[in-house]
């Protein structure tokens, strides 16, 4: 039996197909809650694709950070806005979607012809199988990248303080 695609490639196609479909759903669907749900599914399948790249830690952090925290915040805000009346999210009908589609398709054609076609030949995996394990990531993060890490933590702190200030009614 000699199929043109291997089982692994079919697996990737299935995962990537669902992820791409959900990405389109985020943009196309009118109801923001449904957009958010599409995004959640997209992030979930992106996490699976990270697993197929042998990056277990980042895949699980993808689920933990994006679907577990960020998207819940999104849903929370959408619902808070929904409490104020249903009709505030009415998309106006104009020429923008068509224009956007044209621009998107042309951009995809341009970049893929220049960048992705040459990369289709690259199929040699150079990274070690354990390159995504928590041990190796921790070691790199706390040796070579310790300053960026600290700056990121300060950024998160600033983010917390900023959002608290914004959320307070009277400062």
């Amino acid at each position: 039996m000699n199929l043109p695609v291997t089982g692994e490639q079919l697996t990737f196609m299935a995962l990537a197909g669902i992820a791409a479909l959900m990405a389109v759903g985020v943009v196309v669907l009118n109801n923001p809650v449904r957009s958010a749900m599409c995004l959640v599914v997209n992030f979930f399948f992106l996490a699976f694709i990270y697993f197929t790249l042998n990056a277990q830690l980042l895949g699980i952090s993808q689920i933990l950070v994006y679907t577990g925290a960020i998207m819940v915040l999104f849903l929370f805000v959408v619902m808070l806005l929904n409490l104020g009346g249903k009709q505030i999210f009415k998309e106006r009908r104009d020429f923008k979607p068509i224009l956007g589609m044209v621009v998107g398709v042309s951009l995809f054609g341009m970049i893929s012809s220049q960048l992705i076609l040459p990369m289709l030949k690259v199929d040699q995996i150079r990274a070690d199988n354990a390159y995504g394990a928590p041990q190796s990531i921790g070691k790199t993060l706390f040796t070579n990248y310790v300053w960026p890490f600290e700056i990121a933590s300060v950024l998160l702190l600033v983010g917390i303080v900023g959002s608290i200030l914004l959320a307070k009614r009277r400062v």
Binding site: E8, A20, V27, L53, Q56, G104, L107, L117, V122
Partner: peptide
């Protein structure tokens, strides 16, 4: 030890998915 997975998928496929998602987001 970690098992190698999906070894027969070329790099371009991942990039194609990334590009598609990026452009969808940008258009959005």
């Amino acid at each position: 030890p970690a098992q190698p997975v999906l070894q027969s998928v070329p790099l371009g496929w991942y990039l194609a998915l990334g590009l598609f998602t990026f452009i969808t987001g940008a258009v959005g």
